[in-house]
């Protein structure tokens, strides 16, 4: 049905443009997604990772949250590894935290931003995993 050459050229053109958009889109906006353990290990071996966008998934350390400035909404807290709670790093974030954020309930969080050379993670966004209030385990219900 693509006897008409113009259709074929059109198809190839569209495919090329879309591929180009996706390719440059990925390379310019991608972030590395890692756990705190990976973050520590990889930034030590490759310092250039301090300059790029990184997303880290971990757990908010209990009792670590502190409101540095209420007027500017600057928050400071720590995120630890889900499997190895010994590995943790401090996070600073300016803005509104999600309602589900807290530092006393083992909240899992995903922070996105840049891991500075001084070892502080400067977050541009903080997400807590909410879902429909996770499936409660039976131990929780018993307690």
């Amino acid at each position: 049905m693509f006897k008409n050459r113009r259709f074929f050229i059109g198809l190839v053109g569209v495919a090329a443009v879309v591929t180009y958009l996706i390719w440059t889109g990925v390379s310019e906006t991608m972030v590395y997604y890692m756990t705190p353990v990976e973050l520590m290990a990889r930034t030590t071996s490759d310092p250039s990772l301090h300059q790029v966008g990184i997303k880290v998934s971990g757990r908010i350390v209990k009792g670590s949250w502190e409101l540095v400035s209420g007027e500017e909404l600057i928050h400071r807290f720590a995120v630890e590894d889900l499997e190895d709670p010994g590995v943790a790093f401090p996070v600073v974030y300016q803005g509104l935290l999600p309602d589900t954020f807290n530092d006393h309930e083992n909240v899992e969080a995903v922070v996105e931003g840049r891991f500075r050379e001084d070892g502080v993670f400067e977050a541009t966004s903080v997400l807590t995993k909410c879902g429909s209030r996770y499936e409660a385990s039976s131990e929780e219900l018993a307690g």
């Binding site: 879309v18 996706i22 889109g25 310019e28 906006t29 991608m30 972030v31 590395y32 997604y33």
Partner: peptide
């Protein structure tokens, strides 16, 4: 992308709103 990149290179790469908006 996160699944593919992790499966192929062992390194998870994610894209978010900036990617989707751009494309």
């Amino acid at each position: 992308l996160p699944l593919l990149s992790e499966g192929l290179t062992g390194e998870a790469i994610q894209v978010g709103a900036p990617f989707f908006n751009r494309v």
